[in-house]
Nucleic acid binder design. Structure first.
Length: 664
RNA sequence: GCCGCUUUAGCUCAGUCGGUAGAGCACAUCAUUCGUAAUGAUGGGGUCAGAGGUUCGAAUCCUCUAAGCGGCACCA
């Protein structure tokens, strides 16, 4: 009846097959090995069920475990479905909603019948999932008419699915996947041929959480179950090991162990920096000061509390008031029983950001175009009353200090300033041990200030600057993110990659024409008229709190010597060496090394262990021999080998590493 | 803020059926002077997160509050 299809394989060869032939049949025709290994297909580049009939001429590539990204996508998507099937089997009346694959597994959101799921439910669900996998139920794709599908969902009490089916775009083919003959889910696919293709030992349900229907806070709270899923148990085990390794780097754990800082409920969301933690801060801050001084910034310090009218003018009061710490501009009533505030108070607010204050400094006096670009910097301490659920260690806090800066410049200086900033940031990240980072451009959001022309221009400028800085390349992971910009400006984002491959957005630069307008900043141009400057908001670290947290996790606590709170410890073996140890400490300290002595009456084994756990980069062991010879036995953190050196040479060795990279 | 879980000594954690609190580490004292990841002995240390309730009796059961953890949402 119909003509044969021409299917082109990756090696360029072509096969003529009847319409309705499946990729699985073609794999079988090629060879039994491939037939066994193939779990999916790419048809004209699109991921495709291996059992789905081909209907057109196409390029076909069979997917096996070797095509890891595709294979994992298929497998994780299937695990999500098996999870949903298992939950409905164990908890009748639970509605299914949505369950995609993720970076390391899958999740599924349910509308539970009577109570949300807890972690105690997970073992039973896992067991049921294994039953479904063992049953090797075929997964079969079917196309449904929208009305039939909605009716079906309504009949089975699946109101979320019914709503979704009703709202899917016109013209989209609605497909369902059957698991055997007794369960199905609406799904775009693709899926494996049957549940038995999954490795029952290669997944694990990891946690439960709440999640809003369609990610919208105003919608119903669903109950989400997360799992991690892989092709093999070996991959799963490797993943679990990676998680354990990441947990060992947790800055909250290391911060306590290394006595760097603490948090407590009396000031939740604000950090108590201990001497050692604050030493890291001071070194980092000193480094940043040198960096911005060298880049032509002038540092300022602005008020912590400003009148609410100022925040109204800047637009923050209207948009972010809920997240600001607001203070009545009135002396509180000290009566025990009376109201704390009487009458109508005027309001002030702790600053949630530095930019309005910087505009106020800019506005002092008349500025000439000759003074631009004017680069203003501040180690600005800000407060934001973040939602409680958002707080996380020292990474997300309510009081934080930004390495903030605002460049006031003319239109024609923007591209150059942004490109220069990119260069400064590159230097800083490399100095701080992050050679790899990605650059992204966040484009206009839906809700925004300013005209489309302004946004066109602002986005184009940032794009051009990145190109000029040589960062608009795949090496920098260059991409544009529609809708992600701030309400007043597009922003360049800089995402660090840490030692275990996680990414952290830290740096940013945004070109803002809104705030200078709102706060009436102007300069006198060459033509003698008033002009609006453009304001470039920029930060490299982001905040000191978060960046130090990232440093701790990146280095697993083993900070480079120049940042380490204690750079060396002189530890004695016998008390006869105490005097010599003090001499060694004094010698190193005089050269600016942060050094401590450990003359406790303890065994050297204990001292080595403790200072190693404290991540001290250099341990200098002195016994009778060293005291007599004027040497020290150097043991570097993480190494067992020791090197006996004259004190002066040891000092030179340590000094070389204890010097900040920009001072070398 | 929302969902779930958690909160017991400075830290990490046991604590069964509701019957009045335990370990290791840390700390203190004493002994030990020792060569590269934990020397030994002895001792002190608790309003079981807070408030209320049930009960003859609550670390344990219930309610509320707070904080922490994992997510969701938020992140100027």
């Amino acid at each position: 009846m119909s003509e044969l299809l021409t299917i082109t394989l990756p090696d360029g060869s072509a096969r003529q097959v009847a319409p309705g032939t499946t990729p699985a049949q073609i794999a079988a025709a090629i060879g039994p090995g491939l037939a066994k290994a193939a779990i999916g297909a790419r048809v004209d580049g699109e991921l495709f069920d291996i059992t789905r009939p081909l209907e057109h001429d196409a390029r076909l590539a069979l997917v096996t475990a070797r095509d890891e990204a595709d294979a994992l996508e298929l497998v994780r998507h299937d695990f999500a479905h098996v999870l949903a099937e298992a939950v409905q089997a164990l908890f009748p009346g639970t509605q299914i909603t949505f369950g995609p694959s993720t970076d390391d597994g899958f999740y599924y959101d349910f509308a539970p019948k009577d109570r949300p799921f807890t972690e105690d439910d997970l073992p039973a669900i896992e067991a049921k999932m294994r039953e479904i996998i063992a049953a090797d139920k075929p997964l079969r794709r079917e196309v449904w008419a929208r009305a039939d599908l909605i009716a079906r969902w309504q009949a089975t009490g699946e109101s979320f699915k019914a709503q979704w089916a009703a709202e899917l775009p016109e013209g989209e083919e609605l497909t369902v996947y059957w698991s055997g003959d007794d369960w199905f889910d609406m799904c775009r696919g693709p899926h494996l041929a049957s549940t038995g293709k999954l490795d029952p030992a290669a997944f694990k349900l990891t946690r439960v959480s709440g999640a809003y229907w369609r990610g919208d806070q105003s919608n119903a709270m669903l109950s989400r179950i997360y799992g991690t899923g892989w092709l093999t148990k070996k991959q799963l085990d490797a993943h679990l090991t990676r998680l354990e390794e990441a947990a060992k780097r947790d800055h909250r754990k290391l911060g306590a162990e290394m006595d760097l800082f603490h948090l407590q409920s009396e000031a939740h969301g604000s950090v108590f920096w201990h001497p050692k933690g604050y030493r890291i801060w001071r070194e980092l801050e000193a480094y940043m000061r040198r960096a911005i001084d060298g880049a032509g910034y002038r540092e300022v310090k602005t008020p912590q509390v400003m009148d609410a009218r100022q925040w109204e003018a800047s637009g923050h009061w209207g948009k972010y008031r809920e997240n600001m710490f607001v203070i009545p501009d009135e002396v509180p009533n000290t009566d025990d029983d009376g109201p704390v505030i009487s009458g109508e108070a005027d309001w002030m607010a702790l600053k949630p950001m530095n930019c309005p204050a910087h505009v106020l400094i800019f506005r002092q006096g008349i500025k000439s175009y000759r003074e631009l670009p004017l680069r203003m910097a501040e180690m600005g301490c800000c407060h934001r009353n973040e939602p409680h659920g958002a707080l996380h260690g020292i990474m997300r806090v309510r009081q934080f200090t930004q390495d903030d800066g605002h460049i006031f410049c003319r239109e024609d200086q923007i591209v150059d300033e942004v490109a220069q900033f990119c260069q400064l940031l590159d230097r800083v990240y490399k100095d701080l041990g992050f050679p790899k980072y990605a650059v992204k451009l966040a484009l206009r959001p839906e809700k925004r200030f300013g005209s489309d022309e302004m946004w066109d221009k602002a986005e184009a400028e940032l794009r051009e600057a990145v190109e000029r800085a040589g960062m608009a390349t795949p090496e920098f992971g260059w991409e544009e993110l529609p809708g992600e910009g701030a309400f007043y400006a597009p922003k360049l984002e800089f995402h660090l990659t840490d030692a275990i491959g996680r990414t952290w957005q830290c740096g940013t630069i945004q070109s803002d024409r809104v705030l200078p307008e709102r706060l009436d900043a102007s300069y006198i141009g060459e033509d003698g008229n008033r002009h609006r400057p453009v304001m470039l908001h920029r930060a490299i670290l982001g905040t000191f709190e978060r960046f130090i947290g990232i440093l701790i996790e990146h280095f697993a606590g083993r900070l480079p010597t120049w940042l380490a709170p204690v750079q060396a410890v002189v530890a004695t073996i016998v008390s006869d060496a105490d005097d010599y140890a003090q001499h060694a400490v004094a010698t190193l300290a005089a050269a600016g090394i942060r050094v401590e002595s450990d003359t406790r009456n303890e065994k050297i084994n204990l001292k080595v262990r403790e200072h190693s756990l404290q991540k001290v980069p250099f341990l200098l062991v002195v016994g009778k021999r060293e005291a007599e010879e004027g040497t020290v036995a150097i043991r570097r953190l993480g190494e067992q080998a020791q090197q006996v050196l004259p004190l002066a040479e040891a000092l030179a060795l340590i000094k070389a590493e204890a010097t900040a990279p920009d001072l070398v």
